[in-house]
Design a protein around this nucleic acid. Structure first.
Lengths: 235, 235
DNA sequence: CCCACTTTGTGCACCGGTTCACAAAGGGAC
DNA sequence: GTCCCTTTGTGAACCGGTGCACAAAGTGGG
């Protein structure tokens, strides 16, 4: 059997690596715009905010695309990462729930950047249906199945109230969608094979608060002062 | 030395645990509203979408707050987790950048729920300054240092354009803030001791696209068809 | 008081991911 | 062609986190 040069290892890229590829891609796009032709793992890693060993190991999962002594060809690497992430095709995204957040997402140009196209906006509120946002008419949630099928929607962004999220998710999944980005503050239960990613502002703030508290505790005399467990009993 | 009953182990809660505590807290609040007095690790874990062994190990890092054969007291556990996360005090949050996203965040009631209070909205655009949003006047970014000091802001939400984010972050940090939630699609470089959490919609979509591509590849005849590396050379 | 039952808390083996450190590979000078 | 310099790709040790499985601890019934 003849093997191609630079053939990537058998499929199976670590999840942690996948999560960083978009970071590398963004850094590379910046470099491409600035006209750089090649970049070393050291420089790219710095731009992406990771260490260079990690970057090299990540890229090695895609294949052997660097040149020792030189570095990586910027354009070529952009192409390879884009292809690996599936950004060489174009994905139709539907946003469900056109409240403050849904509107902001629809107008947020940044994420339509490469490969993604907002194909539909859906809401249950008759007052909102028919609004014209970011070049699209808001359609009624009753049209969900039709819209998903007709426009080839394969990724759904859920920006509904928490109470509606599970129910909408069920319908979306029944309609054949297997990739959901969930902004509603609930734990969705979904069948095997459906990918959910969750963005939760409140959780992020709580994590920050935890660390902030630690920092201020440390400055004001350390943790575990006297009366922390009013109801605790001495031994 | 007398040790209190139920004293938590020496400080040092795993990061992965911290990230899940808000999930448990949310589930517990739901149970509290429904009037449940106690809950088993099995039930709570299910509600939070994790397995019960993990939940028990997580909680054991806070202390020994359960009763064998019974479960956990809902209210008591809410109190303990809240305290651990620092939600028993109230945190003043400033949102910088009042575009679509900043506005949505300001209006998003959900995350003001417990412990957090939006104390200021700041923007650089004179057209936006003075707008009245969610009960607050938008102030000019020139006031940043004053506002942070006067209102005791300790957590900043960055919702500026990417180009401005690093510069604003530098000023915010210089003003003494050490906790930042960054929505701008850039890698911020910050000194030791400053906590950054990043929310990046575009990255989340790209990760979904990766998995979606895998799924569809698998159905349409498997990966690595003939012409994937047009420029690759046979050995 | 004792026994059967429930549920916590945790020791331990395992696993994915990170980091170090270096051999291998390529470029360029002479 | 040879030597030196740079930079990649990766083996191996390490580290944090997960999940199993069970002993310890508590409840309730008789």
């Amino acid at each position: 059997m003849i093997r191609r040069l630079s053939q990537p290892r058998e499929r199976g890229i670590p999840e942690a690596t996948v999560a960083r590829l978009p970071l590398y891609l963004r850094a590379l796009n910046g470099m491409s715009e600035r006209g750089l032709a090649t970049v070393s793992s050291e420089d790219l890693a710095h731009a992406a905010g990771v260490n260079s060993a990690k970057l090299r190991k990540d890229l090695s999962h895609l294949g052997s695309y660097g040149t020792r002594g030189v570095g990586y060809d910027v354009e070529y690497l952009i192409y390879q990462i884009s292809r690996e992430l599936g950004l060489t095709q174009d994905w139709a995204v539907a946003i469900i729930g056109v409240g403050n957040l849904g509107r902001a997402l629809a107008n947020y140009g940044g994420f339509v950047s490469r490969g993604f196209r907002i194909a539909a906006l859906l809401d249950a509120d008759p007052d909102v249906v028919g609004d014209h946002i970011a070049g699209l008419d808001v359609e009624h949630i009753d049209e969900l199945e039709t819209v998903i099928r007709r426009r080839g929607v394969s990724i759904v962004v859920l920006a509904t109230p928490a109470a509606a999220a599970q129910q909408v998710a069920d319908r979306v999944i029944a309609a054949g969608v297997t990739s959901i980005l969930n902004f509603a503050p609930v734990v969705l239960s979904v069948p095997e094979g459906v990918d959910i990613r969750k963005v939760d502002l409140s959780i992020e703030l709580q994590i920050l608060a935890f660390h902030e508290q630690r920092k201020t505790d440390r400055m004001t005399g350390g943790p575990a002062m006297a009366e922390e467990w009013p109801e605790a009993v001495d031994l």
